[in-house]
Write a protein that binds this DNA or RNA. Structure first.
Length: 522
RNA sequence: GGCCCCAUAGUUUAACGGCUAGAACACCGGCUUUUCAGGCCGGGGGUCCGGGUUCGAUUCCCGGUGGGGCUGCCA
């Protein structure tokens, strides 16, 4: 451990986020990227983005863009990676594919790996046989490899013949028998495995591509990665990686395995399906499946702002040193420590996420708030809305909404009169006094120069004169104006809507009520 | 099934052997001379169980239980 500390201080920190473009980037991945990013920036290190596209069969077009755009939207910028380049490129594994074979073969030469000629069908038959014999998870390991077709069991000349004749083969790691393999995890402490439980994992596939195990170790070494910060699901394959570092004779990086993000009910990893069921997104930004054309909104589309989502994700598994939960990216960088990352899985709580988002919306400058609202505007307003009024309205309404969309929804009431149905539904009570008071109010409003404070006084005055409870009277006005029972202080609302429009809306309700009465009496 | 990881209120968590176990979201109540999803104040609610170690365990050790992860020529 002392050695490790020394390493940290003498070498500059280099971390990487290494997603595979087999699908869109979900928030678990974003969280991993964020923690890597925070750790790098905190330590004046480099954050590297590396695309692990070694699985040709599962490659999804557009996924890489989705990954990059998600990170960009959130302000998680990479120092090295695709598009920006860097001294250790290329940063897409498919573009460095010719490099892995020699490393795999080096291991064969050293006696730490071997060629295996078993076809997928043979492997399946082998597994099936063992399963039937009562072995729940058959392994290709130090025992069973003796019964398979590989360079350990076949004579050397036959191996050569097979390879030269173009027979497909893979290269497997030769896991040593009965050894304790342990590594120190920055978050969890020592983790140890017995090598007998490990598979002879495939390092190099028959299609000429490396597997994750090989590629990730080779690239982490070549790119001088100092800390591997990744999800907990990688713990079981870490001993294989540890073995590889040892076989190559390379110094291994520090490992830090992050706790999983769980579904809201705690029953398993957060998945797209679980999130949809619970009613929130799993992606930072919208994703449209190129195959099915099915599309899912991201947090951006439902009205989260990047500041908010960053904060939400940072608090999933990490805890700041202070009793305070709202942080900017800069503050997060400043406070971030790996030793304040927890070990247990964190259930995603959408309610709290919205609250955090709201806290950040509340802190936005008017200009920034407008900027975030802008992409949504056409969905809520017609062309002609007054920009300045809209800006003022957003500022007033933001206290009452947790997302940009909620705020916009509330803001509509400033520009558009309510449905009369909802007005009638919510109007507290209606009688001659109310009617008279309301029309008097409209009259006063239209005549006198008033600010929002005067308006409140007028309301009280009129309510008193007509022996109405002022609370109820105010509610009446609010409902008549917006068709809603809740909203910003009435005075503010009225100045926002504008006197003329207020009078128009009140008269509209008055007239409608009048007509309704006539219909009833007929 | 095997291996590994984890375990403080409903949820996210604080406490790195020593104060009535601290906060936030949610919930309940009050106030904010109207509403409220905003603000303020208050309230209920927690150390999974059993053994150790110790003067003293949320904390350290062991065992159980529970939950999760992994178990592919996927990452």
């Amino acid at each position: 451990m002392e050695q490790n500390f020394q390493k940290c201080t003498t070498m500059s920190v280099r971390v990487r986020f290494a997603p595979s473009p087999t699908g869109p980037l979900h928030i678990g991945g974003v969280r991993t990227a964020l923690f890597n990013f925070l750790f790098a920036k905190k330590n004046n290190g480099k954050f590297i983005l590396r695309i692990e596209d070694t699985d040709r069969s599962r490659y999804v077009p557009g996924a890489e863009d989705h990954i990059k755009n998600s990170l960009k939207w959130l302000g998680i910028e990479w120092d090295e990676g695709p598009d920006v380049g860097g001294p250790f490129g290329p940063y897409r594994q498919s573009e460095r594919v010719n490099l892995y074979r020699e490393y795999a073969e080096l291991l064969v030469k050293k006696g730490h790996a071997y060629y295996a000629f078993d076809t997928p069908e043979e492997l399946e038959a082998f597994r099936e046989r063992l399963r039937k014999a009562g072995v729940p998870n058959p392994q290709y390991n130090s025992i069973t490899r003796q019964y398979m077709r590989n360079s350990l069991t076949l004579p050397a000349d036959e191996v050569e013949k097979l390879i030269n004749s173009g027979t497909p083969y893979v290269i497997r790691i030769k896991v040593p028998r009965n050894r304790e393999i342990k590594f120190y995890d920055v978050i969890r402490g020592w983790v140890s495995f017995n090598s007998n439980e490990l598979d002879d994992k495939v390092l190099f596939k028959s299609d000429g591509f490396p597997t994750y195990h090989l590629a990730n170790v080779v690239d982490d070494h070549l790119m001088q990665i100092t800390h591997v910060i990744r999800g907990e699901e990688w713990i079981p394959s870490t001993p294989i990686h540890v073995l590889l570092y040892e076989f190559f004779g390379w110094e291994k990086p520090q490992f830090a395995h992050l706790p999983l993000i769980l579904r809201p009910d705690g029953k398993g990893k957060l998945s797209k399906r679980a999130a949809i069921e619970a009613g929130f997104p799993v992606y930072a930004i919208k994703w449209t499946d190129p195959q099915t054309n099915e599309s899912n909104e991201g947090f951006r589309e439902i009205g989260f702002i990047p500041e908010g989502l960053i904060n939400v994700l940072a608090l999933l598994g990490w805890h700041p040193p202070e009793d305070r939960e709202i942080y900017t990216l800069e503050e997060l960088i400043n406070y971030f420590e790996l030793d304040r990352v927890g070990k247990s899985g964190a259930q995603f709580n959408f309610e709290k996420a919205k609250w955090i988002n709201q806290q950040h919306i509340l802190r936005l400058s008017p200009e920034k708030l407008y900027e975030y609202a802008e992409p949504f505007l056409s969905e809520y307003f017609s062309e002609g809305v007054d920009r300045e009024t809209l800006m003022r309205a957003l500022l007033v309404m933001r206290e009452r909404g947790t997302t940009i969309r909620e705020i916009l929804e509330l803001t509509k009431s400033v520009f558009y009169p309510p449905e009369l149905n909802s007005v009638f539904e919510l109007l507290p009570e209606w009688n001659e006094q109310v009617r008279t008071a309301l029309s008097e109010f409209a009259e006063v409003i239209s005549k006198e120069e008033t600010d929002s404070h005067d308006i409140s006084n007028k309301i009280k005055e009129i309510a008193k004169r007509w022996e109405l409870k002022k609370g109820k009277f105010m509610l009446t006005i609010r409902v008549a104006l917006t068709g809603q029972k809740a909203g910003p202080p009435l005075g503010e609302l009225i100045t926002l809507i504008g006197k003329e429009e207020v009078v128009r809306r009140i008269n509209r309700v008055l007239n409608a009520k009048e007509e309704g009465k006539q219909i009833q009496t007929k």
